[in-house]
Design a protein around this nucleic acid. Structure first.
Lengths: 204, 204, 204, 204
DNA sequence: CATGAATGAGAATTCATTCAT
DNA sequence: CATGAATGAATTCTCATTCAT
C-alpha cells in the first residue's frame, strides 16, 4: 500500500515521471519510436526537453520504461484478482473481457505493445518481461487442454500466438477503419477464439 | 506476360527500380520506415542515393511504392489461379498454404505489411489497395457462411481480421523467438483458424 | 594570521567556499575549463549546484577565483620567508626547491596554472596578478645579472620565461609519461636552469 | 611524388579536407578543444557543418587528425634535410632556427601542440606519434653528450623536456604580452638552451 | 541561505534531399 | 541520366543557470 504523498515536491516529481511516460506512450503508439522526436514528448508532458533526460538516460531508456509499464499494466489488467477456479468457459469469457477492457481503457499502451519498431531497442529486462507477463495464459491453455476442453493436439505456444494475434488483428482493423468494434464484434471474436481451441464434438 | 525488354537501357532502368524497391522493402521491414535512412537503401540497391530520387519523388513516395508492390504480391500469391470451385475445407487449406508460402517466400514483404509505422505515410491509392486486395477473402467467408459451413452469426469483417491477425501473430511469435513455425505449427494454426469459423456440430 | 572564526555559520560558509575552489581547481586542472561542467564541481565540493552561484556569479567568476588563489599560493610558496640575503647559488637552489615543492604539494593548482584554455576568461584583476606574482623573480634575475653571476647580456624577461617554461616542460613530460621526476631529475633541471643563465667562465 | 590533380572534384575534396583541418587547428589553438564548437569550424572552413562529418567520424577524430598533421609538420620542419654532420654548435643553432621558423610560419599548429586540453582525446596512433616525432632530438642530445660537448651527467629526457619547455615558455610569454620575441630574444633563448646543456669549462 | 529539480539554449551529430560534375 | 559529395534543418543530448521549496 502506498503511503500518502511525502511532500509536494516528491508528488510533483512522480507526476512528471508519469506525465513523460504517458506522453511517450501516446506518441510512440501514434508515430512509432523512430518517428517520434523527444521535444514533442516533452511538450505533451508539459516539461522541458531537458527534463526528460533527468528521468531517463536517453531515448532508448525511455522506450524501455514505456514498454515495461505498458506490459505490466497488461499483466495486471488480465490477471489481478482473476478467479482461476471458475468453469472454463466463464473463465475464458472473463479473460477476454479483461483483454478488451485493457484495450479500451489504455488504448495507447495497448497499441504501443503491438508496435514493432521499438523491439530492437528493448533491453534484456524488457525482453524478459515480454516472456513472463503472458505466462499465466500458457498455464490456462495447458490446463484446459488437459481437462479435455481444448483440443488435445493443440500446441500451447501456437494457440497463444494465434489468439493474441487474432485479438490484435480485430483492434487493428478497427483503427484502420475496416471494422467497428462494438460488443457484438467483441463477442464474435471471443467466440472465434474459443472455438479455435475448443475440442470438436464428435458426432456419435 | 511482360513484353520483351525494349532496350538495354530500359531493362537496366527497370532493374534499378526493382532493386530499390527490394532494398527498401528489406530495410523498412527490418528497421521500420522512420528508422531507415535513404542512403543505406541506395547502398543495398547498388545505386547512388540521388538515383532513388529519379524514381521516387521522396521517401514517402518510396514507401508507398513498396507498400503497393508488397500488397499486390500478397494478393497475387493468395488468389492467382486459385480454384474457387473446390470443396470448402480444401479451398481453405489451400488458401492457408498460400498465405504461409507468401510469408516464407517473401518474408520481407510480409513483415513490411505487418509493420505499422508507415501507415501514416500511405496515400489514398495505397489505402484503397489495402481495402481491395483482401476483398476476395470476404467473398469466400461470406459464401462459406451462406453454405452453412461457417457459423451463421459470424461477422465477415471480424472473421477476416481475426484470422489474418492470428496468422500474423504466429509468424510474429516466431520472429520474437517464442515459437518455431514448422509444418505442424502451421497446420495447427490452420485448424484453429478453421475451427474459429466453422459451424459447431450440434450433438443430436 | 586569520582571525578566529566568527561563528559556526561563517566558518561553514568559508569552508564551502574553499571546498568549491578545491573542487574546481582539481576538475579544471584535469579536464580544462570548457571541458568541466559545473554540477560535477558541486558534487565534488559536496554542495548543491545552486550553492556555487551564491559564492560566484558564474562559471567565469569561478575560474577567475580559482586562478587567483592558485597564483597567490604560488607566490607565497616561492617567496614567503625567502631569505634574499643568501649567496646567489644557494638562493637559486632554494627557489628551485620551493618551485618543486609547490608543484608536488599543490599539483592541481600547479597544473591549472599551466593550462591555457581559461586564459580568455580571465578578467583584468587576474591578468594583473599574473604579471605581478612573479615580479620578485625578475628582481632576482636582474640582481644576479648586475652582480656578474648571470650573463650580462641576459634579457630578464626571456630568462624568466625560459626557466619557468623549462620547469613546466619537465613536470608536463612526467604527466605525459615521458619522464619520471625524481630528485636526480629535479636537480638536473635545476642545474640546467642555473647554467642557462650563469656567466660563462672565460678560459684565461 | 604527387601526380597532378586528378580532377576538379578530387582537388576540391582534398581542398575541403585541408580547409577543415586548417580551421580546426586555428580554432582549437585559440579556444581549446572543448571550447570550440563544430559549426564555427565549418564556417571558417567555408563548408556546411554536416560536411565535417563526411571527412571525420566525430569531433574526436577531427582533433586527432589536427594533432597528427601538426606533429608531423613539426617533425618535418625540424628534421627534413637537416645536415647532421655539422659541428655541434652550428647544428644546434640550425635546430633552434628551425624551431623558431616553425613557430612563426605555423603559429596555430605550434600553439595547438602546446595546448593540453585535447590530450585526453588522443588515440593510440596519435600518442605513438607524440613519442616518435621528437626522437631524433634525443639522439642529438645523446651524441653531444658522448662527444663531451654537453654535460656528461645530463639526463637526455630531462634535457629535452627542459629545452622544449623553455622554448614554449618564451613563445607563450609573447602571446601573453609579457615579452616581445624579436631576433635578439630568440638568440638569447637559444644561448640559454645551449648553455643549459653545455659542459662547463673548468677553470684551469 | 542551501538545495537540486527544472529549464531551454546550444552542443554534437544525422539524414532527406539537391545539384554540379 | 547517374552519381555521390555537399547541404542545413532537424534530432538527440548536455549543461550553465535559475528558483520554488
Amino acid at each position: 500500500m502506498k503511503s500518502a504523498p511525502k511532500s509536494r515536491t516528491e508528488a510533483n516529481k512522480a507526476d512528471k515521471h508519469a506525465r513523460i511516460l504517458d506522453a511517450a506512450t501516446a506518441l510512440f503508439a501514434e508515430r512509432g519510436y523512430a518517428g517520434t522526436a523527444v521535444p514533442p514528448v516533452a511538450e505533451r508532458a508539459r516539461v522541458a526537453a531537458g527534463t526528460i533526460y533527468r528521468f531517463f538516460d536517453n531515448k532508448e531508456a525511455l522506450v524501455n520504461a514505456v514498454f515495461r509499464r505498458a506490459k505490466q499494466a497488461l499483466g495486471e489488467a488480465l490477471f489481478e484478482g482473476l478467479d482461476l477456479e471458475q468453469a472454463p468457459r466463464p473463465l475464458f469469457d472473463e479473460f477476454w473481457a479483461r483483454l478488451y477492457r485493457f484495450a479500451r481503457e489504455q488504448p495507447e499502451a495497448f497499441r504501443f505493445l503491438e508496435l514493432q519498431d521499438h523491439h530492437r531497442y528493448l533491453d534484456e529486462t524488457s525482453r524478459h518481461l515480454e516472456r513472463t507477463v503472458l505466462a499465466p495464459v500458457a498455464v490456462m491453455v495447458l490446463q484446459l487442454r488437459e481437462l479435455g476442453v481444448f483440443e488435445p493436439a493443440l500446441p500451447v505456444d501456437v494457440a497463444m500466438a494465434f489468439i493474441w494475434g487474432g485479438f490484435v488483428g480485430v483492434m487493428k482493423a478497427e483503427r484502420d477503419g475496416h471494422l467497428e468494434v462494438d460488443q457484438r464484434a467483441v463477442d464474435a471474436a471471443r467466440d472465434m477464439a474459443w472455438r479455435s481451441c475448443a475440442r470438436v464434438q464428435e458426432s456419435p
